[in-house]
């Protein structure tokens, strides 16, 4: 059993990571960080760079949480990939960050978070960035 966090290099992703650390401490479980950019291009804004990964690793170490990384690219929908991974590692909870969307926006834009919330067969913890964070809303 492990805590799984879907990470993006965004304020939402950071918030999710913090929440996931707390969760992993609480459950005394290891933490699996999934940062899986969409494959097919050499560069993706979803991929976290080395410095970020190193920083996250350090934070996990200081919190006493055992961290595993899964950074390979995926094809298709990220939500499917996360859910499949959760199944493979028998995650006890999936932690994700939420983006602000207007109600109209939710109609047209596929929401990974929405898919996960609706399709997951295990608990999902969805967090928003801390208030006071100069929250950048992603396009």
């Amino acid at each position: 059993m492990t805590v799984l966090v879907g990470f993006l290099p965004t304020p939402q992703g950071e918030a999710a990571f913090d929440a996931a650390i707390t969760e992993a401490q609480r459950r005394a479980e290891p933490l699996l960080l999934v940062n899986s950019p969409r494959g097919g291009a050499p560069i993706s804004a979803e991929a976290a760079d080395e410095r970020t990964i190193a920083d996250l690793t350090e934070r996990a170490r200081r919190a006493g949480v055992q961290l595993h990384l899964h950074t390979s690219a995926h094809t298709g929908e990220l939500a499917d990939h996360l859910l499949r991974t959760a199944e493979e590692v028998t995650a006890s909870v999936i932690v994700i960050g939420l983006r602000k969307r207007s109600p109209v926006g939710k109609l047209f834009l596929g929401s990974t978070a929405q898919r996960i919330l609706l399709d997951a067969d295990r608990p999902v913890l969805a967090v928003k960035p801390h208030t006071g964070t100069p929250g950048a809303t992603l396009s």
Binding site: P30, A48, E50, Q66, L69, H70, S72, E88, V89
Partner: peptide, 25 residues
């Protein structure tokens, strides 16, 4: 190859502990 930090490419970098890495492609 990369001097420091975990391989950002499809590898896994367990920080302590021996739990198996997932999804090393």
């Amino acid at each position: 190859g990369p001097a420091a930090g975990p391989e950002p490419a499809g590898g896994t970098a367990p920080t302590g502990g021996s739990a198996p890495a997932v999804g090393a492609v």
